[in-house]
Design a protein around this nucleic acid. Sequence first.
DNA 1: TTGATTGATCAACTGGACTTGATCAGGCCC
DNA 2: GGGCCTGATCAAGTCCAGTTGATCAATCAA
Lengths: 106, 106
Amino acid sequence: MRVLDHPLTPELARQRLKALADPLRLQVLEVLGGGERCVCDLTAELGLAQSKLSFHLKVLKEAGLLTDRQDGRWIYYRLQSEAIEQLQQWLGGLAHHCRTPAPPCP
Amino acid sequence: MRVLDHPLTPELARQRLKALADPLRLQVLEVLGGGERCVCDLTAELGLAQSKLSFHLKVLKEAGLLTDRQDGRWIYYRLQSEAIEQLQQWLGGLAHHCRTPAPPCP
DNA sequence: TTGATTGATCAACTGGACTTGATCAGGCCC
DNA sequence: GGGCCTGATCAAGTCCAGTTGATCAATCAA
């Protein structure tokens, strides 16, 4: 069974949405959408304090949106596109019957 | 040009993600995913304080995720599924080239 | 018109997310 | 080993999103 076949729990979906819902983290994802980067690279490119970037990378990683690998002194982050695909699928399940008219109230 | 053909601005996408990233609002959406409902109905079904629900409905509405209509004393909310579809599309654009290896750092 | 009901809005409060600067751990080169 | 990087972690401070209870506006029923 591939990862994509596992539906997200609402809790994990919410965590991912929250991780995405930050302007700085979206900037990070936008850069990583263009390919893998090391932290020092990201720091320079986004003009961020090092601890600040580290904090947000941690949030994104804990949400499953990023993975990292170490190579010597450097740590490279990349986007986990499967996580985004899962989220897309999950969103698709939200609106299934939303056009059903309301039961009249009085 | 249909609504869906307008791509989301990053700012609006972020606003929608943020609106979605709240457990209570997700509950609201889950209920409305099953069809239109009036506010008093939602209040009862979710067991919420009235002002609390009203606050979250406003957030969702301002993000374009809900629309409402008034019928007499009652106000009915429904999910705006196009907003979710737009968000799905927008997410799809995030990871385009994420498999490009990092430029070596040293 | 008056009283009751629905639902939005307001003000005050609270908690947690984010920021900032410092410190710490691990890997590299001399 | 000693000094120097890279990047994670910690503690303290700030700020804003969410909660709560009260008030307000609009609609309807009597």
